[in-house]
């Protein structure tokens, strides 16, 4: 790249890196504080705890009934992933391949949930769900989580499908593939990498989705992040270490899927849409 060697630019460069470094240091500090505290026997007024123990994990697992919470979390998350995957990919396929009157409005409809605070649509939706008797239920949690995840899948998949040459499908038709085998033999293999990426991202985001789940979750349909919130909210009641042990368990479940997702996607795709880099 272009070198600039002036003293001012050196100072500027140093300052930029220093700020970035400090941010990362603090970020890692926050995460480390949770991990260290979850293993602490007693940690008050010192740099590091007096001793280390793993007992908080056992007590947290029991106190917060984590075996059922973790189970519920995965059931919710996988239900959301499968439903938003099925609906999202078909919708994205139609939007990527066809131009029809009103398409812009449909695309806008899928953009809006990402532009509006979750509570704005979450509160009316939760009200509706409670009136339908779905409040507090497993399916209530799944349904409310579809609102951000379905558009997410659609928006990730549209550019991915657009870059698959439609002539491939035409060629398959010419060689005699029916709709079924076209889908199974041609489209699915081509779509799979994009789908995998999109669905893993939805998975990670749904595990961490607090606001919406919180609005409709009942005692039997709580996910990990909601349980964690309640625990921190009532932090006087339980030992801090126990709460942090739960936070670490939550972190591990999230990071497991994050690491898996990062095998297929670039980290920045978690926030930004897939983009092709300019060739140069």
């Amino acid at each position: 790249m272009i070198r600039d060697q002036g003293l001012l630019s050196k100072i500027w460069r140093f300052a930029v890196w220093a700020v970035a470094g400090l941010f990362i240091l603090n970020l890692l500090g926050v995460i480390a504080a949770v991990i260290v505290n979850s293993f602490a026997t007693r940690w008050l007024g010192t740099w590091l705890p007096l001793g280390l123990t793993t007992k908080w994990y056992f007590s947290a697992w029991k106190e917060f009934q984590l075996s059922s919470v973790v189970l519920v979390t995965f059931q919710v998350v996988f239900a959301v992933v499968i439903i938003s995957g099925l609906l999202g990919v078909t919708t994205a396929y139609a939007l990527a391949r066809r131009d029809f009157p009103g398409k812009r409005i449909v695309v806008l409809l899928f953009l809006l949930p990402l532009l509006i605070p979750p509570l704005t649509y979450g509160i009316p939706l939760a009200t509706v769900l409670y009136q339908l008797g779905l409040g507090g239920s497993f399916w209530g949690v799944v349904l409310i989580n579809l609102v951000p995840s379905l558009p997410f899948v659609v928006l990730v998949m549209i550019p991915f499908i657009e870059q698959i040459d439609p002539r491939i499908e035409a060629a398959a038709r010419v060689f005699g593939a029916g709709t079924g085998s076209l889908f199974l033999r041609i489209l699915l293999p081509l779509l799979l990498p994009g789908m995998l990426a999109a669905l893993l991202l939805v998975l990670v985001r749904t595990i961490a989705m607090f606001e919406l789940t919180f609005l409709v979750a009942g005692p039997t349909s709580q996910t990990l992040v909601v349980s964690l919130y309640y625990a921190v909210f009532a932090s006087g009641v339980r030992a801090g270490q126990s709460i942090d042990a739960m936070a670490v368990i939550y972190m591990v479940t999230t990071l497991f899927w994050l690491v898996l997702a990062l095998q297929f996607v670039n980290p920045s795709q978690i926030v930004a849409r897939a983009k092709q880099q300019p060739a140069s």
């Binding site: 990362i24 970020l27 890692l28 926050v30 995460i31 504080a33 949770v34 990670v204 985001r205 961490a208 989705m209 607090f210 992040v225 964690l228 919130y229 921190v232 709460i243 942090d244 936070a247 939550y250 972190m251 999230t254 990071l255 994050l258 990062l262 980290p267 920045s268 978690i270 926030v271």
Partner: peptide, 17 residues
């Protein structure tokens, strides 16, 4: 990758930390 951690961990975890 480091920077994507707080986004995926979410606000509740970060608040706790």
């Amino acid at each position: 990758t480091i920077l994507v951690l707080p986004i995926t961990l979410g606000t509740v975890f970060v608040a706790d930390g």
